[in-house]
Design a protein around this nucleic acid. Structure first.
Length: 490
DNA sequence: ATTAGGG
DNA sequence: CCCTAAT
């Protein structure tokens, strides 16, 4: 029983043609995160200058555990030969949310040495890891952050740390944007660049136009809800409307001086987006993939601005951030939630019941009316629980395990086995609040699966084959143990 | 609260 | 990751 399988060889060449699906995945991520932001957002917003919630700590020591020479892993090596690795994580959950909070701003920009983290050093192996493996950056190269997808930056603000001279904030609703753009523009875009290159291919790598999208705003959101509805249901309805919009596969639309730029093959320079562009000329909008709307504004990015439009179906709605749409059309028993801020031309003045709230809300530009409404009036509503749960049961944001985390997990499991996730958690992820033992268990499950499939089929940041080998070995070993115990008890 | 698995 | 059933 002692000896496990034969020594594995380190297969080189990790499949890396994973980029294909990235696009798709990114979209999905967008959806989720969008929702999250909207929900959790407070008033502050991430400013471009916030450079990333870089983790300051970053004092990662990664020492090679003594288990390296595991050419023939056996019971002992599994159980004892490993030093303990512990992930010390200082941040807690909602990292993104934090970023959106005023205070965090200060914190984030703080000095790199301030983290109150505890760096636990144990024996020969230890390492610090902060949740979004920002620590990885300085240690491992194969982090998912390395993918050349700009998009990603929008989603993983925290990742654009180390080398980025600028960072994006996700498309969250911004509340202070108005100030920046005195006009009714919802988009706050800054661009600076040094263009000179005029290549024809969009993929050309010349000078870069740096764009910093401060926030995506949702001009209007129409909610149809009976006056007798409760605040709770309104809340939920808004949430559903929002998620319905965001939920569809979104794509980004580019607006230049109000006109939608359709030709995706044109280069920025060709399109007229260059260094000398004054901000505000460029706009972005998020829109459903399928514009199956009945009316004519289908094509017109400004449809939201046009007062002529009648009613928008949820799906037809586009979230855009350039045009400010300030309409006053409101139907009876229709609570119109205006998100445009100050510049609000309309007087979403009086409303039935929820009027009070709305007024307050009118201060918040952006669709984020949700949190506002969310105040205190929370009632039990007999609605179905779709996307907008009664409870804020938001799906947690995705947090891909970093290689460092995987290693920690593997090591813990090697020692503890696969049936003690609680202990594994405590042992290796005690400080990673966002990693629950269930998460670890799930991760192990996927790791085992990953280890079994061909490298080409793997996705995400490639996990070193060495680790995968250990996963299989440990899995095999502990599975065996489990069987034995079962047989014994029988 | 944990564990184990399916979704 | 989420959700659940069973501990």
């Amino acid at each position: 029983m002692g000896d496990s399988s034969s020594p594995e060889n380190h297969l080189e060449g990790q499949g890396q043609n994973v980029l294909e699906r990235e696009d798709e995945r990114v979209k999905m991520r967008t959806t989720n995160e969008k929702v999250i932001h909207i929900k959790s957002r407070s008033d502050g917003l991430i400013e471009p200058g916030q450079k990333a919630s870089k983790d300051c700590s970053a004092e990662n020591h990664v020492e090679k555990p003594s288990l390296e020479g595991r050419s023939h892993m056996n019971l002992d090596s599994l159980a004892n030969g490993c030093a303990t690795r512990k992930l010390v994580n200082r941040d807690d959950d909602e990292n993104f949310v934090r970023c959106a909070q005023p205070n965090s701003k200060i914190k984030i920009s703080g000095s790199p040495g301030s983290p109150p983290d505890t760096i636990k050093v144990k024996d020969a192996s230890h390492f610090v890891n902060d949740e979004n493996n920002s620590g990885d950056n300085s240690v491992l190269e194969n982090s998912e952050r390395m993918y050349p997808f700009k998009k990603r930056k929008f989603f993983y603000q925290t990742s654009s740390s180390t080398s980025d001279s600028w960072s994006h904030c996700q498309g969250i609703v911004d509340s202070s944007s108005t100030r920046v753009n005195g006009t009714n523009h919802g988009a706050v875009i800054e661009e600076s660049s040094s263009m000179a290159d005029q290549q024809v291919h969009p993929a050309s790598k010349g000078c870069n136009v740096k764009l910093s999208i401060k926030s995506f705003k949702v001009p209007e959101l129409f909610i149809d809800i009976p006056e007798t509805a409760t605040i709770g249901s309104l809340k939920r309805t808004v949430m559903e409307a929002v998620t319905a919009i965001l939920g569809d596969e979104l794509h980004v639309g580019i607006l230049l001086q109000g006109k939608k730029v359709r030709d995706d093959s044109k280069t920025l320079i060709q399109t007229g987006i260059s260094q000398d562009d004054k901000r505000h000329r460029l706009g972005f909008m998020l829109e459903p993939r399928h514009n199956r709307m009945s009316s004519s504004y289908n094509d017109d990015p400004c449809f939201l601005t046009t007062g002529s439009r009648q009613k928008l179906s949820r799906q037809s709605n586009s979230l855009m951030l350039q045009q400010g749409s300030y309409n006053v059309s409101r139907e009876r028993s229709t609570v119109k939630i205006e998100n445009c801020a100050e510049g609000d031309l309309n007087g979403v003045s009086s409303l039935g019941d929820t009027s009070a709230n709305n007024n307050n809300m009118s201060k918040c530009r952006a669709l984020v009316t949700v949190p506002a409404i969310n105040m205190d009036a929370l009632a039990v509503v007999p609605y179905r629980r779709k996307s907008g749960n009664p409870d804020f049961g938001q799906r947690r944001i995705r947090r891909p395990f970093s290689v460092l985390e995987v290693e920690a997990l593997v090591q813990a499991v090697e020692k503890l086995g696969t049936g003690r996730w609680r202990d594994v958690k405590q042992r290796a992820f005690d400080n990673a609040k966002h990693r629950t033992y269930v998460d670890l268990k799930d991760k192990w499950k996927t790791l085992v699966h990953t280890a079994r499939i061909s490298p080409q089929q793997r996705r995400g940041e490639p996990v070193p084959q060495e680790l995968l080998d250990r996963v299989l070995a440990a899995h095999a070993y502990w599975s065996q143990q489990q069987c034995k115990h079962q047989l014994k008890s029988m």
